[in-house]
Amino acid sequence: MEYELQEIEAHQGPDLTFEGRLLGDYSAKSKSAPRWTDYEVWETRGGAWIVVVIGRTIEESEQDYYSVKVLAQGDEQARVIEAMDFMRWGYGPRALAKRLGWNLKVRVE
């Protein structure tokens, strides 16, 4: 997959411009709901992950709400846990984690 220029105007977190490729996404849209949440994980050319949570709406008086988190390169398991914490561990984030092949098991001594 090619890296493409992405621009995100966030409501929570910094506005971002980056060259990235989509690692995975998940939409929690149901057929009848006017609001739902989408989840995306991007990778930049430099190896950072951009985690995006989008509160979507079809209501004309409302707008989509973007929250973003930048995760620098580092220990992959730590980044997975940080990404999941940001996405709040619900059904949608767990479905996305499964698509991405993320290990959500943590060993505690």
Rank of each mutant, 00 (worst) to 15 (best):
A33K: 03
K69R: 15
Q63G: 11
L71Y: 03
V70Q: 12
Y39N: 01
V68K: 12
T57Y: 11
L22G: 10
Q77N: 09
L22H: 07
M84E: 02
R94S: 00
P34T: 06
G90D: 05
V70A: 01
W89F: 03
D15A: 14
E60P: 03
Q12M: 08
T57D: 14
S32P: 05
L22E: 13
A48G: 04
I54Q: 11
R45I: 15
W42T: 05
Q63N: 14
G90Y: 08
G24W: 12
W89S: 04
Y26D: 03
L16H: 13
G47M: 04
M87L: 10
L23D: 15
A72Q: 08
R56V: 02
D25V: 00
D75L: 11
F18D: 09
T37I: 14
R79M: 00
D38Y: 00
A95V: 03
A48N: 15
Q63R: 15
I58G: 08
V41S: 00
E19F: 09
E60Q: 07
R56Q: 06
P93L: 03
E59I: 12
P14G: 11
A95P: 03
T44I: 06
A78F: 12
Y66M: 03
T17S: 13
R94I: 02
Y65P: 04
L71D: 07
A28N: 09
P34K: 00
V68W: 07
G74F: 06
I54G: 00
E62N: 08
V41C: 14
G24Y: 14
E43N: 15
Y39I: 01
D38M: 01
L96W: 10
S30C: 05
T57H: 04
W42M: 10
A78H: 13
P14N: 13
W89N: 01
E43I: 14
L23F: 12
S27P: 10
S67C: 10
E82T: 14
R79I: 00
